[in-house]
Nucleic acid binder design. Structure first.
Lengths: 181, 181
DNA sequence: GACGATACGGAGTGAGCGTTCCGTTTGTCA
DNA sequence: TGACAAACGGAACGCTCACTCCGTATCGTC
C-alpha cells in the first residue's frame, strides 16, 4: 500500500529533485518551468514525473516541508515564559523568512488553497493559533481576532515585506495594531 | 504627431475594447487571454492590436484609468475639515474598491512596476502623500512613515482584504497601527 | 556475471496564447 | 455614387511549457 522500497538511485534522484525544486520555487515561484528544475537537479524531466505526479504536486511537497518547519518553531515556543514576546518574535521571524521565499508567499496567498488550508498545513495552523491564544490570555494581543484572521494578517505582512524589504519598521506598524488597546 | 483622427468605427471599437478589458482584467488579472477580451468586446484580435501595441499596454491603460479615479477622489479630500478622518476614510475606501479589482491588485503589487511607480500613477502618489501629511500634522497618524511606506501598507491591506473579504475588522487592525501612539 | 525489474533521459506531443498578416469590409469625402 | 484609405476579422505562426513514451542504462539478486 505504501512505499514499494525505492532503488538507491531512485532515492538519490528524488532527493535531488526536491532540493532543486525548493531552490527554484523559492526564487521564482510556480512560474519556473519544470525543465529548469530537472536540469538543476541533474535529471531528465521524465524522472521528475516518476516521483511526483505533477508540477503542482512537487510544489506542494516543497511548501509543506517548509510549513512543517514553521510549525516546529511554533511548537518550541508553545511554553515560553513570556507568551507576548514569543508571539511577536515568532510573527516577525516567519514574515522575514517567508518573504524571502516566493513559493511560500504564493502558497499562503492562495485564496482557495485547499491543500494548505485543509490537510497538511494543519499543524502550522494549530500551533500558530496556540501561540496567539496564549498571547491573548496574558493581555499582549487584542482579543478580537482569531487564528484565521491572523493568517490573513500574515499574508498582508508578507505583501508589505515583499514590496519594501528594506523598511524595518513597516511590519511594526502591523504589530502595533495587533497589540492590546 | 498626436492623433491622426480616428474613423468612427475605430473610435467605437477602441472604446469597446477598453471596456471589455476593464471588466476582464478586473475579474482575472493579466492572466486573461487576449482573445477573450476581443470576443467580449465583439471584435477580432487584430483590432485590439490596432489600438494597443501589446496586451501589457492595454493592461496599463486600464490600470492608469483607474488610478486616476483614485487620484481624483484624493484631490477632493485634500481640504477636508478633518484630515484624520479624511485620511482613514480614503484609505478604507481605496482598499475596499481595489480589492475587488484584480488588475489593480496585481499592478500595485508589482515590486518592479515601473509604469505605475514612475510616470503616470504619479498624481495618485502625490495626492495620497498630501492626505497623509495633513493627517500627520494634526496628530492623527504616526509620523514615522512616509508616502512610500504607505503604499507598501496599502499593498499589504489589499492582500489581507483579498484573503478574507468578509472580516470587517482586519483592516482596522492595520489602521490602529497607523494611529498615533 | 547474468538476468529481470526498476529507473532514467530527453525527444516528442499537444495545448494555450501573444502577436502578425492579409484578404475583405466599411467609412469618408469629393 | 464611386474610389481610396482606413480599419476589420480571424486564421496562421511561433514560442513556451506541462506531460508522455520508449529505447537505454543501472540496480539488486542468485
Amino acid at each position: 500500500m505504501s512505499k514499494p522500497v525505492l532503488r538507491a538511485d531512485a532515492r538519490r534522484n528524488r532527493a535531488r529533485v526536491l532540493a532543486a525544486a525548493e531552490e527554484a520555487f523559492a526564487a521564482d515561484g510556480l512560474a519556473v518551468p519544470l525543465d529548469d528544475i530537472a536540469r538543476l537537479a541533474g535529471v531528465g524531466a521524465g524522472t521528475v514525473y516518476r516521483h511526483f505526479p505533477s508540477k503542482e504536486a512537487l510544489f506542494q511537497a516543497v511548501v509543506l516541508e517548509r510549513l512543517e518547519q514553521f510549525a516546529a518553531e511554533a511548537r518550541e515556543l508553545a511554553d515560553a515564559e513570556n507568551p507576548g514576546e514569543a508571539f511577536f518574535d515568532y510573527f516577525t521571524r516567519v514574515i522575514k523568512q517567508a518573504s524571502l521565499n516566493r513559493a511560500i508567499c504564493e502558497a499562503l496567498g492562495e485564496t482557495s488553497g485547499s491543500a494548505y488550508k485543509a490537510d497538511a498545513g494543519s499543524e502550522f495552523r494549530t500551533n500558530l493559533a496556540a501561540l496567539l491564544e496564549r498571547a491573548q490570555t496574558v493581555g499582549a494581543v487584542r482579543k478580537d481576532i482569531d487564528g484565521e484572521d491572523l493568517r490573513a494578517l500574515i499574508v498582508g505582512a508578507l505583501a508589505v515585506e515583499r514590496y519594501s524589504p528594506d523598511s524595518r519598521h513597516l511590519v511594526r506598524v502591523l504589530l502595533d495594531g495587533l497589540r492590546c488597546v
